[in-house]
């Protein structure tokens, strides 16, 4: 479980970053800190962050204890919890526990050929929304600031590059953005900033660079990933545009995840390992 893709100098701060997960933690963590600064540290949100992170890690360690006894995976749990913090909104913090349990539990319980099927943060968010009726996604919560795009995009790029999943993110964003452009700008005739406003949406950026790029829950083969991203983008576009369902990408990903099994059968490739 310890293949490094890049040779970083050892005994150097950079060697820490040789694990793509550290990048992700660093990025999602600093994004969260920025958000907290910008909003004067809202108490409720601090509670939510604390609870999400601690519960995810506890569940991860508990599940590990009864299965693999490999405790190093707490980092993945941390990333999952950061994703939950940034996407999920609940009316009662108890639902955070449900989300964490769903997210971490699915990783251990819903598996096929050594791969978990669902992206943990994704199933945590969507599962809680569907079953509890006390949770929701606020697609507008991170605004549409072009600067965010730059920061998230470039940091995200780095992470994906390191886990070699740039193809799925680029395919998704190009298809989704392209379809929106054709529909809203070329066909309907909205001014161009209508489109940039849509495309710089913080939630969309997070989804593109940090959720669908998860190497554990996307097809192993490059061709498979690209087709996967194409289908995802087309369905998400359809739901967003014609059904006014603005959190569509996150939901569609959940229902498409099981397809990964089929994709992996058609296009064979080696499984990713951190």
């Amino acid at each position: 479980m310890n293949t490094t893709t890049l040779e970083f100098p050892k005994n150097n701060i950079l060697s820490l970053l040789s694990d793509a997960r550290h990048f992700q933690i660093l990025f999602l963590g600093s994004f969260l800190v920025l958000v907290l600064f910008a909003n004067d540290f809202p108490k409720d949100f601090l509670f939510q962050i604390g609870l999400t992170i601690s519960s995810c890690i506890v569940f991860q360690l508990l599940f590990s204890h009864f299965t693999t006894k490999n405790y190093s995976s707490w980092k993945s749990a941390l990333i999952t919890s950061l994703g939950l913090c940034l996407l999920l909104k609940v009316d009662n913090l108890n639902w955070i526990l449900v989300a964490s349990l769903l997210a971490i539990g699915s990783k251990f319980l819903i598996r096929y050929k050594g791969k978990h099927i669902f992206n943990p943060a994704n199933i945590g968010v969507v599962g809680t929304i569907l079953f509890s009726h006390h949770a929701w996604i606020s697609p507008g919560q991170w605004g549409s600031n072009i600067v965010y795009l730059f920061i998230i995009g470039s940091l995200g790029f780095l992470v994906i590059k390191k886990v070699a999943r740039i193809d799925i993110a680029l395919t998704f964003i190009a298809t989704f953005g392209g379809l929106l452009f054709i529909r809203n700008i070329l066909y309907l005739g909205w001014p161009i900033d209508f489109w940039t406003h849509q495309m710089t949406n913080g939630t969309l950026m997070l989804f593109t660079f940090f959720m669908i790029t998860d190497p554990m829950t996307t097809p192993n083969n490059k061709k498979g990933r690209i087709i996967f991203a194409l289908i995802l983008a087309i369905i998400a576009f359809y739901l967003t545009t014609f059904n006014h369902f603005y959190a569509a990408p996150v939901l569609v990903l959940l229902f498409m995840s099981p397809l990964t099994i089929i994709f992996d059968k058609i296009w064979k490739s080696e499984k990713y390992s951190w």
Partner: peptide, 27 residues
């Protein structure tokens, strides 16, 4: 101007980091 400044600074830091380490990061 806290947020824009922070974002700009982290952006600059990131870019310089990328340029400085380009050979290692993008082999």
């Amino acid at each position: 101007k806290t947020l824009p400044t922070l974002l700009l600074l982290s952006g600059l830091a990131l870019v310089s980091f990328l340029i400085y380490k380009r050979k290692t990061i993008f082999p």
